[in-house]
Write a protein that binds this DNA or RNA. Sequence first.
DNA 1: GTGAAAGCGCTAACAG
DNA 2: CTGTTAGCGCTTTCAC
Lengths: 335, 335
Amino acid sequence: MNPTIYDVAREAGVSMATVSRVVNGNPNVKPTTRKKVLAAIERLGYRPNAVARGLASKKSTTVGVIIPDISSIFFAELARGIEDIATMYKYNIILCNSDQNKEKEIHLINTLLEKQVDGIVFMGGEITDEHAEQLRRSPVPVVLAATIDPKEEFPSVNIDYKQAVNDAISFLTEQGHKRIGMLSGPLEDPINGYQKFAGYREALEQAGIAFSEDLVIIGDYTHDSGVEAVGTFMSLAQPPTAIFTSNDEMALGVIHGAQDSGRSVPEDLEVVGFDDTRLATMVRPTLSTVVQPLYDIGAVSMRLLTKYMNKEEVSEHTVCLPHRLESRGSTKSLS
Amino acid sequence: MNPTIYDVAREAGVSMATVSRVVNGNPNVKPTTRKKVLAAIERLGYRPNAVARGLASKKSTTVGVIIPDISSIFFAELARGIEDIATMYKYNIILCNSDQNKEKEIHLINTLLEKQVDGIVFMGGEITDEHAEQLRRSPVPVVLAATIDPKEEFPSVNIDYKQAVNDAISFLTEQGHKRIGMLSGPLEDPINGYQKFAGYREALEQAGIAFSEDLVIIGDYTHDSGVEAVGTFMSLAQPPTAIFTSNDEMALGVIHGAQDSGRSVPEDLEVVGFDDTRLATMVRPTLSTVVQPLYDIGAVSMRLLTKYMNKEEVSEHTVCLPHRLESRGSTKSLS
DNA sequence: GTGAAAGCGCTAACAG
DNA sequence: CTGTTAGCGCTTTCAC
């Protein structure tokens, strides 16, 4: 049996309350007493029981993190941002993969709440009414990271996805491209589908270019789907001269698919990705892409959560981080 | 205030014990009673408090995972394997990044133990004496994943790194290569340095090829360090005709560095990586690499941990998973 | 500056 | 099949 606070108290010849005070750094303890207690702790190899502490204090110093897939290079980076800030504020993280599955997500929220987490960072697809209902019932604060809440009911941290894509496409139209392909995620996906698609259409419209359905392909975010998509694009009667993809991995696929069929990037085809994951510099030519500050989104979300957990006043409920276009080898001109 | 088991008991007109029984699926409850309790739970929106349960039952259904860096494509894959199996066995995961820093690692072990985790999966560099001492004090089982314990004191899941590298190098020598470069991790790293280096030397020796110091460069596992290393290798009086790298990312760097200087892979230079992360098929030519079952290493570690946690008999304390060489475009011949 | 005592919400004998 | 009763190990008033 591990020694308890009671054992330490006895060993040190003081009360449990006093031991508790020194363990928690309460200054109202005479230095001599503190010393005695510390010695007893050392002698016994006492290790405070955080579960008991949690029950008594109603705080677990643990936050829940719901993430679609930790093995994704995209989410893993976000997770790292979250974890670093959590550590900084002395919180631990319970990490759960949801695979963006609504049932799982809702179930996980519940599990985390049962475990008495002090807050939750949620990353997922869309916040549906069912999600919202569940989240509203949460006795602890929830922050959405890289996740759109159509009603802006919950605190969230994002970039302006629509504008970001608009920037990317506008960059391309300014270079004179008239036929710009878009390799999108499923349109139901609020960020990678809907928002980005909206940015694409908006930019075309602003440039006075007619929208053509042929030029939009729905991918599944994988390299393979990029390879496949270029094939389809290139077999068009009027193939695109530039392609934008909603993530970097598909962009690599597009580059490779183009090269496989003897085309060269950026001469024959310019390519712009999205995210600026580490992949972007791990291709030749290097990938021009929209920089989304993944780590920061995670870090800021967690920081925001700490504010809510401490019941601090928060000025902005919905934070929007800056993005920019990083021009590299897969596009011709320098921006 | 959230309703407690006591509130539910009162609402349903039964005792706490009965409520506890239905919540825990104990069959010794009359169906009628069960129904009443369930209804009360529903009505009150009761959510069991896992912390209280943990205190009373001395089980947290939570396991700790110490990982060097979750944002690494390598470890993220391991983590996913761990998490999936944990979920399967109804455990949650407290995830902690250690950056392979010994002090952090030891501190994290302690924190996890304070939080009363039921077990720990540890991934890290080396198990030093200090680590061992700390781990020995753990009241709960610990399993090492992709981590070498020189004394084989703790349960672990790995592949035979030395043999795996030997296989890769032997494949190259069999193709007639006499000068094979190795882009290694720091030699102090027990797996990526020491073990792999040993496999390299062994294979050369078996092939009757003299070892040459020029042909070993220490990298830092990044793409850039691969690019840089080829530069150095190629400026040698007698440059290597094939290069083995201890991870895939450096291999991509090697390929790109070679291509940047006008060489073609595999014609002018053959390249073999290690890990078979998703990167391997995201380059041109695609990367021949040693397949290490990352997800499985994570999954098996977690499975092993569940056995220890359940006090089941375990036949093999130290498990060694199979590896193989996947031949792709960066080497000439098919194996 | 220190101690006594009452819980925190639940499980786990033990009775009945 | 159900209820009673101790705790689990700690925090937190409230006294002194």
